[in-house]
Amino acid sequence: LHIEINVNGLRIELHNVSEELAERIREILEKVDDREEARRLAEELIK
């Protein structure tokens, strides 16, 4: 499954994740104000 999410102008592509996991990642990242911090957090979440 390939999912693309957009959060605060940051486009993140997720591969091989469930829709539920992608939604949780999006919800978490929406709470982060700083774009660079959101990017770093996204990288950690999808490892």
Rank of each mutant, 00 (worst) to 15 (best):
E44K: 06
R26Y: 08
E23A: 15
E23Q: 14
D33C: 03
L1R: 06
E44N: 07
I28M: 11
R26F: 06
H15W: 14
I3N: 04
E23Y: 14
R35Q: 14
I25T: 00
R26N: 02
I25S: 00
H2N: 10
R35L: 15
E37V: 09
N16W: 07
I25Y: 02
A42L: 15
E13T: 14
R39C: 07
L41A: 05
G9E: 03
E23G: 10
I28L: 13
L1Y: 08
I25M: 04
A42Q: 01
R26Q: 06
I25A: 02
R35M: 15
R11Y: 13
R35Y: 15
E27F: 11
R11G: 05
I46K: 02
E30N: 12
E4W: 08
D33R: 13
E20I: 07
I28A: 11
I25V: 13
N6D: 14
I25E: 00
I5S: 01
E37A: 09
K47H: 13
L45D: 00
R35C: 05
L29P: 00
E13Q: 12
I46G: 02
R11A: 11
R39V: 13
I25R: 00
A22I: 14
D33Y: 15
L1T: 12
L10Y: 12
L21Y: 07
L14F: 09
E4S: 14
G9V: 01
L45F: 09
E36D: 14
L41Q: 09
E44G: 05
E44Y: 10
E27K: 12
K31F: 11
R40S: 07
R11N: 11
E4L: 14
E36V: 09
D34K: 03
E36T: 08
I12V: 10
K31L: 12
R26D: 00
G9P: 01
S18C: 02
A38D: 00
L41S: 02
I5F: 05
R35S: 12
V17C: 03
R11Q: 08
D33N: 14
N6C: 08
R26I: 10
L10A: 04
R39M: 14
L45N: 01
I46A: 14
E27P: 01
G9W: 02
I28T: 06
L41C: 03
S18L: 04
E44F: 11
L14E: 00
E43Q: 11
R40P: 00
L14S: 01
R24W: 10
K47I: 14
K31A: 13
E30C: 07
E43C: 13
I12S: 00
E4F: 09
R11C: 02
A42S: 05
V7L: 08
H15S: 08
L14W: 06
L1K: 12
R24G: 04
A22P: 00
L10C: 06
I25N: 00
E43P: 01
R26E: 02
R39S: 07
V7Q: 06
I25F: 05
L21C: 03
V32I: 14
H2M: 13
E30T: 12
E4M: 10
A22N: 02
L10H: 15
H15E: 06
I28Y: 05
I3T: 06
N6P: 01
E19N: 12
R35V: 15
R24F: 07
N6M: 10
R35F: 12
R39T: 08
R40M: 08
N6W: 08
H2Y: 05
E19V: 14
E36G: 07
D34Q: 04
E43A: 09
E36K: 07
E37D: 07
L29M: 10
A38E: 00
E43Y: 15
R35W: 12
R40V: 06
L14A: 06
K31M: 12
E36H: 09
L41E: 03
V17N: 02
N8A: 10
E19G: 09
L14I: 07
L10D: 06
K31V: 09
G9F: 01
E20S: 10
L29D: 00
V7F: 10
E37N: 05
V17Y: 07
V7S: 06
L10R: 02
N6H: 12
E19Q: 14
N8Y: 01
D33L: 15
K31C: 07
H15T: 09
D34Y: 03
N16F: 09
L10K: 04
G9D: 05
R35G: 10
E19A: 15
E19D: 08
E37I: 09
R24A: 11
L45M: 11
L14G: 02
V17G: 11
E30H: 10
E27C: 08
N16V: 06
K31Y: 10
L1G: 12
G9I: 01
L1P: 10
I5E: 01
I3L: 10
N8E: 06
E13M: 13
E20L: 08
R35H: 15
E36R: 06
A38G: 04
N8W: 01
A38L: 13
V7Y: 05
E4A: 11
R35D: 08
R40L: 09
I46N: 02
I25L: 09
L1M: 14
H2V: 15
E13I: 14
E36A: 06
E44C: 07
E37Q: 11
E27L: 15
N6A: 06
S18K: 05
L1V: 12
A42D: 00
A38F: 11
I12T: 02
N8C: 10
D33E: 15
V32G: 06
E19M: 15
E36Q: 09
R26W: 07
L1D: 09
V7R: 02
D33Q: 15
S18A: 06
I46M: 10
I12M: 08
E43F: 14
R24K: 13
E13F: 14
L41H: 03
R26T: 05
K47Y: 11
N6Q: 09
N16S: 06
V17H: 03
V32L: 09
D34G: 05
A42V: 15
L41K: 06
A22W: 11
I3W: 09
K47A: 14
V32A: 09
E27A: 13
E30Q: 13
A38P: 00
I25Q: 00
L29R: 00
V17W: 08
I5G: 02
E4I: 15
D34R: 03
E20K: 08
E19S: 13
L21R: 03
R39Y: 14
K31P: 02
I5N: 01
L21N: 03
I12H: 01
V17Q: 04
I5W: 01
N8V: 03
L45V: 09
I12L: 12
I25C: 01
H2Q: 07
H15L: 08
E23L: 13
L29Y: 13
E44W: 13
L14M: 09
N8S: 06
L1Q: 11
I12R: 00
E44I: 11
N16M: 07
